[in-house]
């Protein structure tokens, strides 16, 4: 393989040179360091209040009073992924409360592998609460892995069982409103959190409490206060602060750079590393200056 090819092989590292991989590695490092530090001095971390999560017990309590079930939906993840696992971790604490009060639950699943994990988690919770005989295997169900069939079945379940509380956590798409409005019709208390931020406004419109954005990921740390979870939360916070600082620095440096004209060498570099140029736009793009400058460092 020639030298050219070796150089070119770094194509995947993108238009921003080494910076892209380094940043990802940096974020990973933050998270790891956060976890390690929090393990050492757990309890030192405080998290701001997340209103929606304080309502879980109240919602389950109301379900107990009316003897109507609690509905949980761990989202429509296309595979068993971290989002579904996170949702189920939150549900574990809801199921725990429900098990204590003997409130019936309905955990409806979209993906068979998520169903398997949900089944196990629910069983475990009832076991640790010392009431394994109260666990009904059929209360955790696989419904369908086709989006709108799932939505139709959930809507039907909500209406027929007159659920008292509904929790939607995880990946939701268009069906979010079908579920939320139907539960609203039967007067259920609803708490929602979704990683698809496009669905958040609909949950805001139809639900009582909504966790915004990555409050969803903060939820398990908030509920359980485990050092590992708190640590990764702190790590993510540091990453956010770094990105903010980076944005400010980039703004200044880039503004200064943008005021000087491009050299031929710059142009050549853009050509070489495939920056997209669109018709009617200046060439190369303005916001590439900054990264052009950084790119010079490794390649000399």
């Amino acid at each position: 393989m020639g030298e050219q090819q070796v150089l070119e092989s770094f194509l995947q590292y993108g238009r921003y040179g080494w910076l892209l991989m380094l940043t990802t590695a940096l974020v990973v490092a933050y998270l790891l360091v956060g976890i390690v530090l929090a393990r050492k001095r757990s309890g030192a971390v405080t998290i701001r209040r997340i209103p929606g999560l304080d309502q879980i017990d109240e919602a389950v309590g109301r379900a107990t009073e009316t003897a109507r079930p609690v509905l949980m939906v761990p989202g429509l993840s296309g595979a068993l992924d971290g989002i579904a696992v996170q949702a189920l971790t939150i549900f574990a604490s809801i199921i725990r409360t429900a098990a204590r009060f003997s409130t019936p639950i309905r955990l409806l699943n979209y993906h068979p592998a998520v169903y398997a994990v949900a089944q196990e988690i629910a069983k475990d919770v009832y076991q640790t609460e010392g009431v394994p005989d109260k666990y009904d295997v059929d209360s955790v169900r696989f419904v369908s892995d086709r989006q709108f069939a799932f939505a139709a079945a959930v809507a039907g379940t909500i209406q027929r069982d007159k659920v008292a509380a509904a929790f939607y956590m995880g990946d939701f798409y268009a069906e979010s409103l079908i579920m939320a409005e139907n539960a609203n019709m039967v007067g259920a208390i609803q708490v929602a959190a979704t990683t698809q931020f496009t669905q958040t406004p609909f949950f805001i419109a139809a639900c009582d409490y909504v966790l915004l954005g990555d409050e969803f990921y903060a939820a398990s740390a908030y509920l359980g206060r485990e050092p590992v979870l708190l640590g990764s939360l702190v790590g993510a916070d540091w990453a956010k602060l770094t990105f903010m600082a980076f944005a400010v620095v980039a703004l200044v440096v880039h503004s200064i750079q943008a005021s000087r004209p491009l050299t031929d060498q710059d142009r050549q570099r853009f050509e070489e590393y495939g920056t997209p140029v669109l018709p009617g736009q200046e060439y190369p793009q303005r916001n590439e200056y900054f990264f052009n400058w950084i790119n010079r460092i490794p390649r000399g």
């Binding site: 194509l11 993108g14 238009r15 268009a174 496009t198 590393y273 495939g274 920056t275 997209p276 669109l278």
Partner: peptide, 15 residues
């Protein structure tokens, strides 16, 4: 997609 190929999108309004 690598940077050299252009990408156009026709999507639903929701997206």
């Amino acid at each position: 997609l690598r940077a050299k190929t252009k990408l156009g999108l026709m999507c639903t309004a929701v997206m």
